[in-house]
Simulated scan of single mutants.
Amino acid sequence: MTVHDPVLAAAHRTPDAQARKPIPDDAAMLRAAAELTRTLSTANPAIYWPDFLASALLGYAALAGAVLFDSTALAVISGLVAMLALYRAASFIHELTHIREGALPGFRFAWNLLVGIPLMIPSFMYEEVHTQHHARTRYGTANDPEYLPLALMKPWSLPLFIIVAALAPIGLILRFGVLTPLSVLIPSLRQKVVAEFSALSINPAYRRRAPEGNFARQWAWQEAGACVFALALVGSVFAFGWKPLLIYMAVHSGMTVINQLRTLVAHLWENEGDAMTVTAQYLDSVNVPPPSPLAAIWAPVGLRYHALHHLLPSVPYHGLSKAHRRLIATLEADSPYHRGNYKGMFPLVGKIARSTMTRR
C-alpha cells in the first residue's frame, strides 16, 4: 500500500554511479525457507476475521469519538487510536493480494465494504499490482510498480516522499469524486485514469493494463462505491459542517504517512534497475523482528517481516513470526538470512538518509 509520486522520478541518481556486483542465490537459505514452512501456508479464518473486524470496529468507534468529544485531549487521543486501528485494518489489503482463491470466502467483499471504500483505497488499486513487485524478473527494475532507488536519489526525495503521502486524502477524493465520473463520459480520459491513476504504486513510470473478466467486474463495483463515498464525503459539509470532514482527512493523512514511513524502511532501495536473484531481493528488503517494541504498530499484519515475505509470499501474516523463529534457529550464523534483520525504523531511516546525502 504505497503512494504514487511522479515528482520523485527527477531525483534519480546520476548515471555515472558505480555498478554493484550481482549477489548469487544462497541455496541453503532458500531450501530451508521452503522446507521449514510447508505447514504454515494456510490462511486461518479464525485469525483473519476477528483481527480485521476488531481493528475496523475500534477504528470507526474512535473516529466517531474524535468528532463528537468536546474535550480536545479526548478528541486527539481518539483520533490517534482511530488512525492506528484503521491503519491496521487497511493493511489487510496486502493480504488480499496473496490469499489463495477460495481460502477466505467473503473476506475481499467485506474488506472493501468496511474499509476499502470508506478509505477510498479499494482493493483493485493493489490487486494485480503488488504481485508484480514479487515477480522474479521485475523486482527492483523499471517495471516494478513498487520500487524506486530511494537510497540513491537526491536528499530532498525523502521528505517529498512523505509529504506526498500526507496529501493522499485530497488526491483520493479527486481520483474518485472527480476523475471517475468524468472518465465515464470521456473515453480518452478513462484510458489515462486506468493506466496512471488506478494503482497504489510509487514508480511514476508504471502503467497498468485495463482489467478483464471477473476482475473488471470487481473493479467496477469497487470504483463505483468509492466514487459515491467521495461525493458523499464532500457533500457531508453541507449537512454537518467542516469538522467531521477535516477530522476524517487528518486521521486518513496520518494513517497514510505512517504507511509511507513503513514503506520507506521496507527495503534498502539500493538497486538501480537490474534484475535480482531471490537472495539479492531478500537482502534489499527488511525484517524488524522482536524485540523491537513498536514494529507491530507501524508495520502491522506481518509487515515487520517484509524481507521474509519476499522469500515466502504465500505464507499468511500469522505464520511469519513462526517461520522467522524456525529459520533463525536453523540457519548458520553466516547465512544471508541474518543480515536481513534490523532493530527498528529510525536506524533504517538514518541509513537511507545518509546514503542520499552522497547524491548532491
Rank of each mutant, 00 (worst) to 15 (best):
V251D: 10
A353M: 13
V76H: 01
F161A: 00
A110V: 07
M345G: 14
T277L: 01
A103Y: 00
E272T: 14
A56Y: 02
V228T: 12
S253E: 02
L283M: 09
V237G: 09
T277D: 04
Y282R: 03
E101G: 00
T330W: 10
F92L: 05
V228N: 04
M120D: 05
L174R: 03
L158G: 07
L185S: 01
V251P: 00
A46V: 08
P22F: 11
G116W: 00
V193G: 01
S321I: 08
F176S: 01
A353L: 08
A353F: 12
R175D: 07
L331W: 06
D5I: 12
V278R: 09
L160S: 09
E127H: 00
P155T: 11
T358C: 12
I352H: 03
V81T: 00
L113M: 14
K343Y: 12
V164E: 08
S41W: 07
T42I: 11
T256I: 15
M276Q: 07
L96Q: 03
I352G: 03
R38P: 06
D51Y: 05
A10G: 15
Y342N: 10
W219C: 11
P22L: 09
R190K: 12
L68Q: 13
E270V: 15
I173A: 06
Y147I: 09
G273F: 06
Y139D: 01
V194N: 15
A33G: 10
M276T: 03
L261M: 11
M249F: 11
T330S: 11
G171I: 05
L231H: 03
L57R: 05
A307Q: 03
E101F: 00
A73V: 03
P22C: 07
D25R: 01
L261I: 12
A33R: 01
E127T: 02
G302E: 02
G79N: 06
A11W: 06
E128K: 13
R207D: 10
L312Y: 10
A333R: 10
H98L: 02
P169Y: 00
A168P: 03
N287E: 11
T131M: 15
A17E: 14
P22D: 11
A195L: 05
Q132G: 01
A54M: 14
L74H: 14
A333T: 12
S55W: 05
G344I: 08
N259Q: 15
P122I: 03
G225D: 06
I186H: 05
V7Y: 14
Q222D: 06
T263A: 15
V301Q: 03
P293A: 12
K192T: 14
Y337A: 02
K322R: 15
F229S: 10
Q222S: 04
L30V: 12
G254H: 10
V129L: 08
A205Q: 13
P291I: 14
E95S: 02
P15T: 08
I247K: 11
L327A: 11
A32G: 09
H306Y: 13
T358Y: 15
A224F: 14
P50V: 02
L231N: 02
E101L: 00
L104N: 02
L303E: 10
M276P: 04
P15V: 05
P122C: 06
Y48S: 01
A73H: 03
N203G: 05
V164M: 10
G106L: 00
L185W: 05
R31N: 14
W269L: 08
W49H: 00
A210M: 09
L167T: 04
I258A: 07
T277E: 07
D274E: 15
D284F: 07
A275T: 09
V184A: 14
W219F: 10
A307I: 07
V115L: 02
